[in-house]
Write a protein that binds this DNA or RNA. Sequence first.
DNA 1: AAGACGGGGTA
DNA 2: TACCCAGTCTT
Length: 350
Amino acid sequence: MKLEQITEPLLSWYEKNKRDLPWRREPTPYHVWVSEIMLQQTRVEAVKDYYRRFLAELPGTRDLAACPENKLLKLWEGLGYYNRVKNMQKAAKEIVEEYGGNIPPDYEKILALPGIGSYTAGAVSSIAFGLKKPAVDGNVLRVISRITENGEDILKQSVKRRVEQELEAVMPEDRPGAFNQSLMELGATVCIPNGMAKCDVCPVRHLCSARAHGTVLDYPKKAAKKQRRIEEKTVLLIQNGQEYAICKRPDKGLLAGLYEFPNMEGWLTQEEVLKAVEELKLMPLHIRAAGEAKHIFSHVEWHMKGYVVKVASTEEKKAGSLLFINKKESKGKYPIPSAFSAYRKYIEED
DNA sequence: AAGACGGGGTA
DNA sequence: TACCCAGTCTT
């Protein structure tokens, strides 16, 4: 089978079946860029509302470059992989400084920006600028591995590089963006992961080797991933009147720069919690358990036990690294990740 | 080459 | 549960 044969059927199918997505309405370079960053490891349905809200607040590259970090993280709150938005702002500043505020229509220059790898550089280049560059993501690797019945591990970068080369060689000069999107659209809606592929409506079923051999569900091949480690944590809801304490996470590592409830490693007893609160220069008045919660990240699990600790009123809005906030501030101002959602309700209620 | 980095939908 | 998602950066 010559891979080149897929281009015409894919393009025809795409024109008839493409979804109406917010970022396809007016595919300016900025719009395409923002959408592609949000879509990294994130489903279309999850992105839609974030995308609309983000563009309403930050309609252009210069707005993004000038946005305060707390507001930026708040716009990303719950979407995950927060380095994406920090890198995007770094890139926005570079674009303002180096390119007068406009993303350059140049694949190599786009690729050199922070947070942009070969996939995103190819997507922006082809969709926004009509450049003949492939955009190979998980969808494309799945589709191609099935069509060619290739049993190599698609997580290996050598496999991805080769697919990029092969696709670049067969891409249509005139519609590279539509071609890239047709492969991704096919992977997202027809040649879907875990579950039955809808081969009966696939525009390239007659060219698919796995389809011919009844082995579609055997592809793509992927190496098994290793087990998550488990971390036990104690989460404190330190209550001072109508306010609760939060603190800022370090600016590197997991959930960098976001806010959280004070917490410590391990499961502490009530006595240990009271002692810890006193070490924060606070006077505990009352303590009660606040339930358990589990949060699963891709590489680690948090097993949390919570306590509500009422403390004697402090004059200070800040006590050490702690910041006391009320319900309204927590909603509008400080980005708090979903990992704490089980405990966030203690300040959002009442 | 392998690990870090979120969160939610789905079977 | 486990997998996967319009991946990228660091080690």
